[in-house]
Nucleic acid binder design. Sequence first.
DNA 1: CAAAATACGGAGTGATCACTCCGCTTGTCA
DNA 2: TGACAAGCGGAGTGATCACTCCGTATTTTG
Lengths: 191, 191
Amino acid sequence: MTPETGRPLRADARRNRARVLEAAEAVFSAKGAAASTEEIARTAGVGVGTVFRHFPTKKDLVSAIMTARLERLFADADALIAEGDPATALFTFFTRMVEQAASKKTVVEALGGEGFELDIPKPIEALRQAVGALLAGAQRVGAVRADAAVPEVMALLSGACRAALDAEWSPDLQARTLAIVFDGLRPGRRR
Amino acid sequence: MTPETGRPLRADARRNRARVLEAAEAVFSAKGAAASTEEIARTAGVGVGTVFRHFPTKKDLVSAIMTARLERLFADADALIAEGDPATALFTFFTRMVEQAASKKTVVEALGGEGFELDIPKPIEALRQAVGALLAGAQRVGAVRADAAVPEVMALLSGACRAALDAEWSPDLQARTLAIVFDGLRPGRRR
DNA sequence: CAAAATACGGAGTGATCACTCCGCTTGTCA
DNA sequence: TGACAAGCGGAGTGATCACTCCGTATTTTG
């Protein structure tokens, strides 16, 4: 991402780089990663050349944004693990992600791979581990059924996020849908 | 879709139209609606001009395919309502849709709107009503919680289909995920 | 402050689409 | 069977992208 040379970036270059990231964050959130590079350049107030100098490929730019967002989610999960009630932390995290999904297409696209292959396995893996920790905590205190494993929880998570974006869930519908999923995750008499 | 003139289609035209539909079905299923019209023409063994004569707009072609698929799903649901056990019919339908989703991108895209706006409200509405009937039947015999309504069931359905496609679910993961959703839908002590 | 290094802007390039147009072919009907 | 309508193929058009290139502007350095 940052040039390999030891030399530090020039002041204007550093400023423009930040502007591009900010613009990309906003534009991708609103329109998804399919938004054109020109629109990002315009929003950032720079030329396209500048965007491509900092991020040689569109994939690089998208990856940078996705990684940043996933890392924020990961940190969020970490905080919940550290301080939250294990019985509710997983559900809280789940709810927060779905809330974000409605306004940030990037969240959904990051979770779903979304066509063009990005090579950002690390943050996704970190998120998966965080979910694993949340799940383990909830299971330890008996808030979630013991036979639920990480893959299906991730599947439910990404499915819920996708559906929230597609259907433009109202807060009410979101709550009702998540209530069903959460009930399914709780320990019960089945199976 | 079909020309407004009273005159019937010429034999070769009818044949080509069918070929185009068949090719579009196959190509869209595999690559999604973003597949190029040229690829469909090539698969059908006709020129692009022929494709556009029968379906003046790409949207028209996509709509035709989506409508056909949704109508098949709708018929499937109808059959289950008529002959199936109300206690399991909804779950059976749900499972079938998710199975299809993995191999047919069009199913998922139809459910999710997927960017470019198609105007196919009728079949979607028919599907919604069929789901409503399945849900009502299951609720009548006590197989599904009474407080579940159509919107959240549709949301769960499209979310599950999307996740199945994105994550390339194994049969095992699919079963485990759906088991959780179904348990959430069953009557229980919550709320 | 001037020279050297670095970064900038945006017109230009090539690729890919959806869609059009028209000369030619094929089916239809008297 | 012959004439005319109906249909066909596919090169061409214009729009949109990602990405490049280079003359110019800005920053850094000595």
